[in-house]
């Protein structure tokens, strides 16, 4: 009798994640469904799948530079930001995980407070600051601005991973005659490779999804795709089909990134601190 009870609840346990995933996918499915319909069909008929599937909406996006340049802009500043964040965070995380120094705890806490700063607070001063440096509407401006929340996060995650590496490894390398930079690049970085992957994943994610700051700092040349969407919608009188197609296309880079890091996500969460 006792053995009978346990398997029943366990056999049904797959239902919970399944229902949850269906709930997650329904709205996304609806968007995909709409992206293959003509706007007139969206407005006139209600169907669970496209009656006359069309690629028109995607053609519009891939042939109009004002649309597809948005993707290039977004990806450019997101990649730039990820590179900058991880590069500067690596030595800092090493310092926090290995050494005690004057004001280290305060500095660490101060860094984390930046993760708590509402982007809305920074929108206006950012605009003025980057105008003063003539950086408005450049990719680097958005990349640096996003460092506000990504660098603290990267330091936090990497510090967690680095603390998991025994200090004896550092000492052995020094005894073997490694200089610090060589040790760091040749031995230490490969040891925390999965940590770097996780940190990069989170930097990519938070930079990719952020819109308020990215939109404030750009006008045309570096405008992110997400902002292009809001503008075009208001201008063209709601072309729902193109809007849906653009939305679907913004989901794809994220989905690709998740697919590549899928085996590290759970591990990274557990070892690191996010």
């Amino acid at each position: 009798m006792m053995t009978n009870k346990q398997p029943l609840t366990q056999r049904l346990s797959w239902l919970v994640p399944t229902i949850y995933i269906v709930f997650l996918l329904l709205p996304i499915y609806w968007l995909v469904n709409m992206s293959f319909k003509e706007t007139s069909e969206i407005l006139s008929t209600f169907s669970l799948w496209p009656q006359n599937p069309t690629l028109r909406n995607y053609t519009v996006i891939f042939t109009d530079p004002s649309w597809y340049s948005g993707y290039i802009n977004s990806i450019t500043y997101v990649v730039l930001n990820t590179l900058i964040s991880v590069t500067v965070a690596l030595p800092a995380a090493y310092a926090f995980s290995r050494y005690r120094f004057l004001g280290d705890k305060h500095l660490f806490f101060w860094l984390l407070t930046n993760r708590m700063a509402p982007p809305a607070v920074f929108a206006l001063p950012f605009f003025q600051l980057y105008s003063a440096f003539g950086l408005i509407d450049t990719h680097i401006a958005v990349a640096i601005a996003h460092c506000l929340f990504n660098v603290p996060l990267a330091v936090w995650i990497l510090e967690g991973f680095m603390s998991g590496v025994p200090k004896e490894i550092d000492e052995t390398a020094y005894i073997d005659g490694y200089s610090f930079p060589r040790f760091f690049v040749k031995i230490f970085v490969p040891l925390i490779a999965s940590g770097i992957g996780v940190a990069a994943f989170f930097c990519f994610m938070f930079s990719w999804v952020e819109l308020l700051i990215a939109r404030t700092l750009t006008t045309t040349d570096a405008k992110p795709i997400a902002a292009t969407m809001t503008r075009t919608v208001s201008a063209s009188g709601l072309d729902w089909g193109v809007l849906a197609a653009a939305g679907v296309l913004t989901i794809i880079p994220g989905a690709l990134v998740i697919y590549f890091v899928r085996n590290y996500i759970a591990k990274g969460f557990a070892l690191g601190r996010v």
């Binding site: 995933i21 939305g247 994220g254 998740i258």
Partner: peptide, 17 residues
Amino acid sequence: VLMALPLLIPWNVVGTI
């Protein structure tokens, strides 16, 4: 992968969806 999907959708697209 499926569960992480909503996390990587730009926030205004979440709104649009």
